[in-house]
Design a protein around this nucleic acid. Structure first.
Lengths: 86, 86, 86, 86
DNA sequence: CTGCCATTTTACCGGC
DNA sequence: GCCGGTAAAATGGCAG
């Protein structure tokens, strides 16, 4: 890419403007997501837990199992039990 | 949030699904952005510089204002009560 | 706080310098922590799991239970099971 | 990491405990910093402005260099192959 | 595959 | 004491 102010420059500008437009859209959607969380929070839901849930749902089952397995393994290695009701 | 399987559960599900849909859209746009970068790269543009250009353009306003704000605070801290209008 | 360049200014400077010194120390320790993680990683440990473990250990038992309870509740509200071995 | 309760477990425990000790130190210093801010506030200083001052001082070098780097990239992007030394 | 960078998440602080 | 916004940490994704 050598030309500036010429054809290549125009192309560069077009790429950049397309990207900027897309990023605006992306930011708008991120804003929508924040709004939904805010609304849920306003109705008494715990957004932190909601985020955990969404992450779990999005996770491949195998990944989730692998992670649980490792965490359990490490707990054992440390001799921790973390009984739910103790 | 107390009901399970009842009204609250429905609301929760709706929030989660709305968010997941929005996140899909967002991921789609992120993918579009990547494609534009890839195309630009294929035409000989340096994507790293493009990213910096975009970042710079995005900062020009918001960040410059932040800088001015900081400088203003700084001046106030150095010149408190020296200005007539305080 | 009205004087600048006088007694109050000196005090301000001293406070700021004390804080900056403390923040340097803090940054140094943060760096040490990163090093330990890096070493552990080099010996085959999964640092993400380690972080989870450390967080669990540092958590109040009551908080941990509350969080687990809520996550379980929300899962039920969505009708998710997440059986460990299915 | 395969051994549990064996050598690997001991290593894990040692890493975790080292990190926890370091994090305690870090938390202690953070607490010191809070105290200094509190004392300054008690003597009539505005902690928000103090924080901005500290941030500004910290940015002066690193961030200014970043700005210069960005501007340099920018100029290169606008003037590629116009400079003799490229 | 490793390091880097952007995004996301968490923790903190000040105001109401 | 909560809530909002703001800074730090951590996770994930991408380029090289």
């Amino acid at each position: 890419m050598v030309e500036v102010g010429g054809v290549a420059g125009d192309h560069l500008r077009q790429y950049i403007e397309r990207i900027e437009r897309l990023e605006e859209e992306k930011a708008g959607i991120a804003s929508d997501i924040r709004e939904v969380f805010a609304e849920a929070k306003g109705n008494g839901f715990d957004t932190k837990i909601m985020r955990q849930l969404i992450k779990l749902r999005g996770m491949e089952e195998s990944d989730r199992q692998e992670q649980e397995y490792l965490l359990d393994l490490y707990k054992r290695a440390l001799g921790i039990d973390f009984e739910p009701d103790e």
